[in-house]
Amino acid sequence: MLMNRVSEATRETDVHLFKRVPTWFLNLRLKDVKTHHVERVLAEDAREHNRKEGGIIRYRTTLSAFFTYLMDNRQIITRNPARRAAIPGAQLSPARIPWLGTEIHERFLIWQQKDQEMAETALVIYFLALRWGEARALEVGDLMLDGQPRVLVQRSLSEGRTVPKRTKTNKTRWVPTANAILPILQRMVEGRGKRERLFPALTRSRLKWRLCWDETGQGKNLHSLRHGGITAWAAAGVNVPLMQRWAGHARVETTMKYVHLVGDQASAAGIAMLDAQNQRLGIAAK
């Protein structure tokens, strides 16, 4: 048992933490527990007991250890739903805040000096808000660059695998193509077959090495590219249901985190879009 591997003080703390688990959570089947369930447990506990961030992290660590045991030692579940659970109310460090506005273009200019191909790859991932596996699985035929340019995201290819699988939410989605990357995509697909990978031989280590990521990435990880793209939509005033669909989020709560991140900037952009629409329709305030 796990109890034999930890100190008495740690055991007592963990037992106390498990007593705080709400009944609704205990009634879930283990294989049905998702990350958002764990996040709800943490949020409810933090709100009810006014927990500090350190206490919430300790609670998540205990839950994560429990699910890891079930996954590794008992093979009851195949993934740990607590591992990536967000800490409610936690402040983002500067290194975790995504690039916005001119910041991503400034990064692009710096990356161009290192490697043009990888700089363009990073910019495309940003503006399409792709998960890493989704970027690796993109094929030339997934791009529709005439009329209303858009990209079909329908598969994911993890590193080390040769056969793609469905996306994280098992759904396909269309993502609009920003003008900033349209010329790049047009060059990428020119003269290539529809079944060819858009980014052949793309790996994390290759992109980081060629862009000197430790030097140029400002402490962010590669997933910050996706975060930045979604946050840019929020800052531009894109409505939440549309953002959720473009991002491929299973839950609207996930999308709302990006709206909260940009705060008044999203509200101002939304009002500007509404004013512009009213002006086109000839609607003016009296």
Rank of each mutant, 00 (worst) to 15 (best):
E120S: 11
T61V: 10
A90L: 01
A122M: 05
D45L: 13
P149Q: 09
R131E: 07
W132L: 09
H105G: 04
P88Y: 00
E53R: 00
S64C: 05
F67S: 02
V151P: 13
A85S: 03
G147H: 12
I125E: 08
Y69W: 10
R155P: 04
T62L: 01
G101K: 04
E134D: 14
P88V: 00
V153C: 06
R60E: 03
R107D: 08
R74K: 09
A85G: 02
L143I: 13
E120Y: 10
L63E: 02
A137V: 13
A129M: 10
E139K: 15
P81S: 02
E117M: 11
K114Q: 15
K52A: 03
Q113C: 04
F67K: 02
R58G: 09
D45S: 10
M118K: 11
V124Y: 04
Y59T: 04
L138E: 09
I110Y: 01
T68E: 08
E44R: 08
A86Y: 01
D115R: 07
Q112G: 10
A46T: 09
L138N: 09
R155M: 06
R131V: 10
D45A: 10
P149C: 12
R83M: 02
Q148W: 12
E134Q: 13
P81C: 01
I97E: 10
R60W: 02
E117W: 14
L152T: 14
W132C: 07
E44D: 09
S158G: 06
A46Y: 01
E159M: 08
Q112T: 08
D115H: 15
D146I: 15
L100A: 04
G55C: 06
S64D: 00
T68H: 05
K114M: 12
I97L: 12
T61C: 03
I87C: 04
E120R: 15
R150H: 15
Q113E: 13
W99Y: 07
I125G: 06
A119N: 06
E120W: 10
L143R: 13
G133P: 04
